[in-house]
Design a protein around this nucleic acid. Structure first.
Lengths: 145, 145, 145, 145
DNA sequence: TTTT
DNA sequence: TTTT
């Protein structure tokens, strides 16, 4: 029986996305996303806690990430959880959990959600003036699961 | 700025939950949840892929899990992602990603979604005839983050 | 700027779906879905409250509904909200809010979540033994908005 | 059996919230939220479509709305669907579907997502500099269902 | 490593 | 009635 595997995040990119263009025309972007939450501890002090998420975006979503997202951008990400295993340098099996993006939408107003270290202060260059949003179903057989 | 960190799963338990009763009256349940998906590969063959998720449920949700969930049960789980780090036996830092449950709802009809290895074929004993569903906000300062 | 408009429901069909096959090969299914919740009133008495939702499913999702869903079936429905206006018999403008389905997944175990008034007690005929689940993006320009 | 009734929206307020302070200290805010989507029609022309949602926020969420939200603000709203019936001026039964908010989070960067008709251009007055976010379970027996 |  |  089919199940549901859905993640919904709203947060800020920790760094500019890293994009790799694969042989065959495919491309993939990776970035980390911070989601903050606030609560009071037993002493009543306000505590901030940040959770970091590993996001993978493929094909059209990788292109959107490359063009429009950068360090600090506030985005909505919807996707699915996937835990991959790999061998570390000591040949130990390790696991890493990622969110495979299925929808990305750039949030925030005019001035944009972040500053680009490399300059390009061209007004709302990466702001959400335009409609920066895409939904894309994963082509599962093309992912290196 | 606060973010959104939300996971929604519908799947089946891989094993009976493991419940620990902590000092101080707190309790925590752990279980794994399988979400299946189906797709066609390039040759058009039907492929099934199973993703396994680590679920942690605290306090009231742990009690619900202990009483009503077992291997095979079909459940709805809503929660948040949390990646913990720990030291493995070689003193290497390792990471594991879990879903901290905020809502659990037992799905499925009368006969229940699973068989209990220990017997207890008492009709709808663990079926969803009753309302087996609970939402509970995490008390963040009480979790061993 | 693009927004997010998402509905996630788990509930039971109130009646068998009504399916219309439109000219041009398109088809649409309508059904109502009940979601129950339980709470205690001020006197501590347990109260059940049922919310009814109007679901519209198009094309492949309409076919899935026609083939596999019936009165009582427990389903997961994901979709988007849409409020339509129409003229009632007195030429008054009226509004109705529907959920346009984007994903439907039949839940529940072997015997299935419902009985079919027309018989067909063929074992797990409409149970979720098979993978009865489909995601389908709406072709917005083909919907009669 | 309990169900799931969940709505997730990201959009912009059409007007400032209307807040009523009820006898007994309770309060409720109403506002409309626009979610935009973009698609291409059969001729390939880009079309924008706006869906309007009726949001009701109670108690703490009403106070958050009153203090921090205004026309144009970009917000995340999570809640549940509820269809109310009422008698119109001709004593006809009418229905209206609302989203009862359970979580509201103000999105957007410094300059804030909207302009206040009454002035107060005080920098980030309504921006999301602060953590403007609240989750609150509905006290169902206190809502005028 | 983000954001406020 | 919003936003871009």
């Amino acid at each position: 029986m089919a199940g549901i595997n859905k993640v919904i995040l709203v947060g800020n990119l920790g760094k500019d996305p890293e994009v790799r263009h694969l042989e065959g025309g495919n491309s993939v972007a990776h970035f980390t996303l911070a989601t903050n939450e606030y609560y009071k501890d037993k002493q009543g002090a306000r505590v901030e806690r940040t959770e970091w998420h590993n996001i993978s975006a493929w094909r059209g979503l990788a292109e959107l990430a490359e063009k429009f997202l950068k360090k600090g951008s506030q985005v909505y990400v919807e996707g699915k959880l996937r835990t991959r295993q790999y061998q570390d340098k000591d040949q130990q099996t390790r696991y890493v959990t990622e969110i495979i993006a299925e929808e990305i939408s750039l949030l925030g107003g005019r001035p944009g959600g972040g500053t680009n270290g490399t300059g390009s202060a061209t007004g709302s260059a990466n702001g959400a003036d335009e409609n920066v949003s895409l939904r894309q179903e994963p082509e599962l057989d093309q992912l290196p699961f």
